[in-house]
Design a protein around this nucleic acid. Sequence first.
RNA 1: GACCCGUUAGCUCAGUCGGUAGAGCACCUGCCUUUUAAGCAGGGAGUCGCUGGUUCGAUUCCAGCACGGGUCACCA
Length: 528
Amino acid sequence: MSSKVRDERIAKLDLLRKRGVSPYPTRFAVTHSCGAVLSNFETLEREETVVSLAGRLVSKRKHGKASFGHIQDRSGRLQLYFRQDTLGAELYELLTMLDVGDVIGVSGAVFRTKTGEFTAKVETLELLSKSLRPLPEKWHGLRDVETRYRQRYVDLIVNEEVRETVVARSRIIKSIRNFLDAREFIEVETPVLQPLYGGAFARPFVTHHEALNMRLYLRIADELYLKRLMVGGLERVYEIGKDFRNEGIDRTHNPEFTQLELYQAYADYTDMMVLLEDMVFEIVTELFGEPSCQYGEHRLDFSKPWRRLSYFEALRERLGVELADATVEEVRSLCEKTGIDVDAVLAREKPGAEKRPKSRGGGPPGGTSRSDIDTPLARERLLEELFSEAVQPYLIQPVFVCDYPKEISPLAKQKAGHPGLAERFEPIVAGFELGNAFSEQNDPLAQARQFDLQALHREGGDAEAQPKDLDYLRALEYGMPPAGGIGVGIDRLTMVLTNSRSIRDVILFPHLRPEASLGEEGEAGGDD
RNA sequence: GACCCGUUAGCUCAGUCGGUAGAGCACCUGCCUUUUAAGCAGGGAGUCGCUGGUUCGAUUCCAGCACGGGUCACCA
């Protein structure tokens, strides 16, 4: 599939070279960005300053011996006015050989057109990079999401909001660093390639080290390494980095994603709530000038303090039933009333188990086998399902959901005076879990028992149960100060703060299957 | 992994109840010195996602496959 436009432009390349014009020179001295011209226009116009701009030619309107166009750089767009009598015949001829999409450098003074648009009257013109492929069309732009994700470079050229999201993401991360650095946290880096994975419930990616001939895992969390640093006395650490989870992909999940994890010695999870709400308050205020923003239909209010709600309170509030001391039978019957397919939930993650179709909102499933509720953690799993189906989607304003069942929180400390609960919370905004935090378990023997329990679950078929990390336990035996820790999903936080519906809109290159049609001869060939 | 939907020109999309396709923008040629979705006149452009099947004939019908989106499953 040879593109006619591409062939024409390659022909132009030769023509340009024959005329002594290099289509790919090395540098251009820029004095102003488009944005700087626009924001200082009055002065520049009054003082007749000659500005020097570089960017992409994104439109061109030729009127015989005069032409208009727009140049676009990182800061915005500015109109250019070209006149044959100003440029001279030779440069004006060069203009006619330029295409929309070419990168150019121009200089000239600024003025206002009849209609009042700020414009540069071009006196010199230079081609900085010849574009061989046409840009998407100017009215509708690039809509096709597959092309947008695969060819993000094109998406960035034509869809301004993509750039805005990228900038917002950068500012969010910068705010986080500023916030934590100001509180004497130090930023560290821990291994991505790990001989043993841990710190979350997830299936890992597996890789292999050739020279050492050993299996390695891509980390699913930073947690266990950062807590080793707590043992080492660093007291306040954080890491912003990629984690990798071998799971499905949807609008809130990408196989590689960015997480902030931080740990603070001598703090507990209530301190973490304060820290997190302070941090997010600061990020949102820096981004929007006020502690609130719009997400879809909702106006989100990040004013402090955020609402705090225990796990069982949240369930009670939504379902009208107290479940803290409920038996598995009671939870089961409530699930059935809510329309949850209990058998399907309990059958999950058992390799080889039949996946039953889910029947939502239907009547109670007939002839169900009661033996399923003997599955390990049946009660907790059903509670989790109830929570994520019937509660979480309705938690729109920022809220800390606290005190989860201990069984699903093996790295957290037990809540004092509540044997069944862990000192753990999840910040939930717009129905999304933005993170996970606990008072960290620092009792080495209690932690060892939790690992052993995980091992049992693993034998029971739970592929995501956490492996026992003996070095981590050894570290704890040296004594880890009491500490609070938080993990925050940066991608999801960015989604909420940029009003993005899909995680793919906040990740520059989201994971996609390989593009089959991108063959040598089709796209990249014809190197003439 | 399951189900549903989509894939036609560089881009955004029509269309063919089965007879190998159109529009706008973009591109090329000409005219045009304040336009901005510039205008006017003319022109070129497509393996209709891929592979099979049915058929005299398939871009259209059928099947499989690929890729994407949505929902579900899994999870953060």
